[in-house]
Design a binder for these strands. Structure first.
Length: 280
DNA sequence: TCCGCATGAATAA
DNA sequence: TATTCCTGCGGAC
């Protein structure tokens, strides 16, 4: 479930479990073996996330750059009695010297050893990350307000804004009653600021809980007397993957359409098009 | 048991 | 826009 909140949560988990310890680094699967050997046995200094990128820092200014892609997973285990044999294709395994903690990386799109300079390049290419306290939403606003591209695409562009994926994209647009195909340069600054502020709260919550929940208190399953969502990401949402089902607020059928290879979801009544909104 | 799709993004064309 | 990376899950069979 890798949107930005997942990576920030992992950075905290890794730091808690490994920071300050000597760590054995290996690649049971083999694809990361050569690089792993270069940091094996070094002190892990900490882990940090920028958007969907994770950097695990080792002594000597060396970093393991991880990007989970669509289905990568990093499982951190603490307080274990013994470290089990790897199951499946484990690209990278971290084991604390005292064997009380280990972490397994599988299916990642990126797992590479980089320098501080290379890490800084990745960060420099990224837009502001709503989870980072130092993020500057105006940097994203400059891109959005000058682009005719649909806001739904701009929100997913990691050089505009870092960490938002398909779920947060669909949900923040719903919460702000904005049609995903609306051109960026027709969005008002106040609307953008409101969406950013909302993402800051929603994504921080995601870091805390490890899930994406976006429904307001009055629309929770308990409040509405409906069954909870049974889905692999677990969170309660308004429109994401609810194609064809009734909108929780207005009962209109949730729509879907492919934009730039990704599925968009929106409510045609709660999120009217810019044109029809202007006519109203 | 098999198939297709998924919270992502680089690359080829 | 299509392909690729290469994991896990749910649903169709």
């Amino acid at each position: 479930m890798p949107e930005g909140h997942t990576l920030h949560r992992l950075a905290l988990e890794l730091t808690d479990a490994f920071a300050g310890s000597v760590v054995r680094v290996g690649s049971p699967q083999g694809r990361f073996a050569e690089s792993a050997a270069l940091v094996d046995g070094q002190v892990l200094e900490g882990a940090e996330a920028w958007g969907k990128h994770l950097f695990v820092g080792f002594a000597g200014e060396r970093f393991v750059h991880v990007h989970l892609g669509l289905y990568g997973k990093l499982d951190v285990h603490t307080g274990v009695e013994a470290v089990p044999d790897p199951v499946g294709q484990v690209r990278m395994r971290l084991v604390r010297a005292d064997a009380a903690a280990y972490a397994d990386l599988r299916g990642a799109t990126t797992c590479e050893l980089v320098t501080a300079e290379q890490r800084d390049l990745v960060v420099a290419r990224s837009g502001p990350d709503p989870i980072r306290p130092d993020a500057d939403p105006d940097r994203a606003w400059r891109r959005i307000s000058r682009s005719r591209a649909p806001i739904g695409g701009l929100l997913m562009d990691q050089t505009v804004l870092a960490g938002v994926g398909n779920v947060y994209r669909a949900e923040v647009l719903y919460r702000h009653r904005m049609h995903p195909l609306r051109p960026g340069n027709t969005v008002r600054r106040s609307q953008w600021q409101a969406m950013w502020d909302d993402l800051v709260v929603l994504m921080a919550e995601g870091v805390r809980t490890g899930r994406i929940d976006t429904v307001r208190p009055e629309h929770t399953p308990e409040a509405m007397g409906r069954p909870p969502r049974k889905d692999d990401h677990g969170g309660e949402v308004y429109v994401y993957r609810r194609h064809g089902q009734p909108c929780l607020v207005c009962a209109a059928k949730v729509r879907t359409e492919v934009l730039q290879g990704r599925n968009l979801f929106w409510c045609p009544r709660c999120q009217p098009t810019f044109r029809s909104r202007a006519v109203q």
